[in-house]
Design a protein around this nucleic acid. Structure first.
Lengths: 157, 157
DNA sequence: CTCGTTGGTTCAATGATTGAACTATAATAA
DNA sequence: TTATTATAGTTCAATCATTGAACCAACGAG
C-alpha cells in the first residue's frame, strides 16, 4: 500500500505488536515474561517477535551465555513509536476507561509534571484536532490500493 | 484486559479500523468507496463497520431516501482518534517511507503551517520521548491479563 | 542424575479474512 | 416496458492466523 499509515500498520498493525512494544518499553523484555504478562500463545509470540525484528522495531540480544539467554529490546524506530502508543493509550483511557480509574499515569521527567500525552502542531504548539487540520497529497501520493479514492479526493479539495 | 492500551486496541486494534477511520476523516464515507479505496472485502467491511459502530467510534446515517442510502461518520470518539492516527502516520512516514516521498502532508488551519504531528507533554509543551517519561500505575492498575508482570514492575520502579 | 529455568517448537482445533458471486431497491435511459 | 446503472450490502467456499496444550533442549543447582 502507498499510504504512510498503511505502511506503518504493516510494521505494527496487529493486535499484539503495540502491546509488545509497550511491554518492552516498560522493561518486560523476556520471552516467558511476555507470555505471562500478555497471555499470548508461545508460538504466536515467536512469530510476532520475528516479524518485529524483520521490520526493524525490536532486536534480540543475548543477556547472558552458558546457557545463552535472550531478551528483546526496542530499536530507535521502536523507541520512536512509544510516544504514539502513549497517545493511543490516552485515547483508550478517555473513551474506554474502566470504573476503577486510569490504570497508568505518565510523568514527564523533563518538567516533573504528571501529564496526558497530546498530539500537537510543533509550529504553533497547539493540540491538533480533526477539524483544524488539512490533509493534502504529498510528492509520494498516488492512486494505489489504500488511496485510490482518497488521492483523488485530496487533490480535488 | 486491564490496560488502557489494550482496551483501546479492542476498539480499533485490527488492521482495517485505523484505515477506515482515516478514510472517513478524509471524506470517503460510503460503502462502495471504502471497498474501492482500501481493497477490503465487502463482507469484512460490513463486519468492521458494525464493530466500530458498536464501539462508539463511528455511526451510520442515511444521506438520502428513495432509495435509502447510508454513509458512515466519525463520532466524537472517532474524531478524537484522528490526531493519534496522524501521529502514527507520521511514524510510518519516518520509518517506512517509500522513495517517492511523503504521500500525505498536514497543514494546521489555526497557524497556517505545514507540520509533522508530534506527541507532547501539555504541561511543558515539549515533545515526549521514551526516555523522558516515567510510567506509574494509576488507581485502576491491577495485575490482570495484559499487566501481570507490568503492574508488579511499575510498582517496584 | 533429577529438577527447575528459560526460550522456544510442534500440532490439532478454531476463528478470521479473502475473493468471487449473488441479492435487493430504486432511479434513469432506450 | 424493459434494460441498465448505482448503492449497499449477503452468502459461501477456501485459505490464513490464532489459540491452547504438549513437548523439546541447554544448562545450572541441589
Amino acid at each position: 500500500m502507498q499510504c504512510s499509515l498503511a505502511r506503518g500498520l504493516e510494521l505494527i498493525g496487529d493486535w499484539w505488536s503495540p502491546l509488545l512494544v509497550r511491554d518492552l518499553y516498560l522493561g518486560v523484555t523476556r520471552f516467558d515474561d511476555l507470555v505471562e504478562d500478555l497471555g499470548i500463545s508461545r508460538n504466536l509470540l515467536t512469530r510476532r517477535l520475528q516479524a518485529l525484528i524483520r521490520n526493524g522495531v525490536i532486536e534480540r540480544m543475548a543477556y547472558q551465555s552458558r546457557p545463552t539467554r535472550y531478551e528483546y529490546r526496542l530499536t530507535e524506530a521502536g523507541r520512536d513509536l512509544v510516544p504514539v502508543i502513549m497517545a493511543l493509550t490516552e485515547w483508550g483511557d478517555r473513551w474506554a476507561q474502566p470504573k476503577e480509574g486510569s490504570p497508568i499515569l505518565f510523568t514527564h521527567k523533563t518538567c516533573g509534571h504528571r501529564f496526558r500525552p497530546q498530539v500537537t502542531c510543533p509550529e504553533c504548539g497547539e493540540a491538533i484536532r480533526s477539524d483544524t487540520v488539512i490533509a493534502r497529497p504529498g510528492p509520494g501520493g498516488a492512486a494505489k490500493r489504500g488511496t485510490m479514492v482518497v488521492a483523488k479526493r485530496l487533490r480535488r479539495a
